[in-house]
Structure formats: structure tokens, C-alpha cells
Measured scan of single mutants.
Amino acid sequence: MTFKAIINGKTLKGETTTEAVDAATAEKVFKQYFNDNGLDGEWTYDDATKTFTVTE
């Protein structure tokens, strides 16, 4: 399945996608990506659209 992340950061904005077997796996991938890029913020997840949003 394809999962999307919308990034609303102070220094980084945009979208990225990942292929994962479930939402928990996708969340781990996205959180690692955000940690690697120095992002920290509020997380939400919309199961209907398979979209994570992080707002810094």
C-alpha cells in the first residue's frame, strides 16, 4: 500500500510517499525520515486517505 506524509515544518514543507504493508510500518519509516531531517511536531493520521500529517 502507498502511504503519504504531508510535512508542515518550519524549515521543510512538502509531501513524500512510502510503500508499506501497514500504517504502523509506514509511520516508522516517516518518523525516521523526519528525525533524520530534524523535524519534530504534532502527528495526525487519516486512515481513509492513508495520509500522515506532521505540523511543526
Rank of each mutant, 00 (worst) to 15 (best):
A20F: 03
E15I: 13
A20G: 03
K10A: 11
T51S: 04
T49W: 04
T16C: 15
V54Q: 03
F30S: 00
A20N: 02
D46I: 03
G38T: 04
D40Q: 13
K13N: 09
E15N: 06
I7P: 00
A5Q: 01
K13M: 11
F3I: 02
Q32H: 06
E15D: 05
A48D: 11
G9D: 03
D46N: 09
K10I: 13
D47H: 10
D22P: 00
T16R: 14
D47R: 06
V29S: 05
T44V: 10
I6F: 06
V29P: 00
N35W: 14
D40L: 13
A26L: 02
F30D: 00
F34A: 14
K4F: 10
F3V: 01
K50N: 07
T49L: 05
N37R: 15
A23D: 04
K50W: 06
N35D: 09
T18S: 04
G9N: 05
Q32A: 12
V54P: 01
V29Y: 15
D40S: 13
A5Y: 07
N37I: 15
L12S: 08
N35V: 13
F30N: 00
I6N: 03
G41Y: 15
L39W: 15
E56V: 14
F34K: 01
D47K: 07
F34Q: 02
T18D: 01
T51F: 01
D40K: 13
V29D: 03
L12W: 15
T53W: 12
A20H: 02
W43D: 00
V54W: 15
F3K: 02
E27R: 09
V21D: 09
E27H: 11
T53G: 02
K31P: 00
K31R: 14
K4C: 11
F30G: 00
F3P: 01
N8K: 12
E15K: 05
T16F: 15
T18P: 00
E15R: 05
G41D: 03
A48R: 10
A20P: 01
L12E: 09
T51W: 02
D36T: 09
N35G: 11
Y45S: 01
A26W: 03
D46E: 06
E42G: 06
F3D: 02
F34H: 01
A23F: 10
N37G: 06
G9A: 07
D47C: 06
V29T: 08
E56H: 07
N35K: 15
T51C: 02
G41K: 04
Q32I: 08
T53F: 15
Y45F: 05
F3N: 02
T11W: 14
E19Q: 14
L39K: 05
T51I: 04
G38E: 05
A48H: 08
V29I: 14
F52H: 00
Y45T: 01
K4S: 05
W43T: 02
G9P: 03
T51Y: 01
T49F: 04
L39H: 04
T44A: 10
K31I: 07
D22W: 00
K28Y: 07
T17R: 06
K10E: 08
L39G: 05
D36E: 12
F30C: 01
K50E: 01
T55V: 10
Y33W: 15
F34I: 11
D36I: 10
E42K: 09
V21I: 12
T17V: 09
L39C: 08
T55K: 07
D47Q: 08
Y33P: 01
F52G: 00
T53Q: 05
F30T: 00
E15Y: 14
G14C: 15
K31D: 00
F52Y: 04
D47P: 13
N37S: 11
D36Y: 09
V29L: 11
V29H: 13
A23V: 07
G14T: 13
E27F: 15
A48I: 10
T2C: 14
I7G: 04
D22S: 05
M1W: 14
G38S: 06
E15H: 09
A48F: 10
T25G: 06
T18L: 12
V29N: 07
Y33S: 03
A20K: 02
W43L: 06
Q32R: 12
Y33H: 06
D47W: 07
Y33G: 01
D47E: 13
T49I: 05
T49V: 04
T18W: 12
T11G: 11
T17L: 09
D40R: 12
Q32P: 01
D47S: 09
G9Q: 07
A24I: 09
E42L: 12
F52T: 01
N37Q: 14
T55Y: 12
W43R: 00
T17M: 09
G38M: 07
T44P: 01
I6V: 11
K50A: 05
T55F: 09
T16Q: 11
E56P: 13
G41L: 14
T51G: 00
A5K: 01
K31Q: 07
T44S: 12
N8P: 03
A20R: 03
V21G: 05
M1Y: 14
K13R: 13
T44E: 10
T2N: 06
E42Q: 11
K50F: 09
E19P: 03
K10N: 10
T49R: 06
K4V: 09
D40P: 05
V21A: 10
T49M: 05
I6H: 04
I6Y: 07
Y45A: 00
T18I: 15
Y45Q: 00
F30P: 00
W43E: 00
G9M: 15
F30M: 03
G41H: 09
G41A: 09
K28T: 07
E19F: 15
L12Y: 14
N35P: 03
G41M: 14
T55W: 11
I6R: 05
A20V: 03
G38Q: 07
W43A: 02
L12M: 12
V29A: 09
F30I: 02
I7F: 15
N37H: 14
G41S: 06
Q32C: 07
E56F: 13
N8G: 04
T55E: 07
K13C: 15
T17I: 09
F52Q: 00
G9I: 14
M1S: 09
T25C: 07
D40N: 12
F52A: 00
T11R: 08
D46K: 02
F52D: 00
K28R: 12
T49A: 06
E27M: 14
T17K: 06
G14H: 14
D22F: 03
K10R: 12
G14D: 06
A26I: 02
A24F: 09
F30E: 00
T53I: 09
T17Y: 14
F34E: 00
L39V: 12
D47N: 07
A23E: 05
K13V: 10
N37K: 14
F52R: 00
D46M: 02
E42V: 14
A24P: 06
F30Y: 00
L12N: 08
F52N: 00
F52V: 01
E56M: 13
K13D: 05
V21N: 09
K50H: 11
N8I: 14
G41C: 09
K28S: 09
F52S: 00
T25A: 13
T11F: 13
N35Y: 14
A23T: 05
N8M: 13
D36G: 06
Q32L: 08
N35M: 14
G38C: 10
T25S: 12
N8R: 11
L12I: 11
N8Y: 13
I6G: 01
T53S: 06
T17N: 05
E27G: 06
F3T: 01
T17Q: 09
T49N: 07
E42C: 11
N37P: 04
A24R: 08
D47G: 06
K4G: 03
T53D: 02
T11A: 08
F3C: 05
N8A: 11
T44G: 05
E19L: 13
M1P: 06
E19D: 09
T53V: 07
T55R: 05
F30R: 00
D36V: 10
T44C: 09
A23P: 06
A48Y: 08
T17P: 02
N37W: 15
L12G: 09
K31A: 06
D36K: 11
I6W: 04
A23W: 11
Q32V: 09
K4I: 12
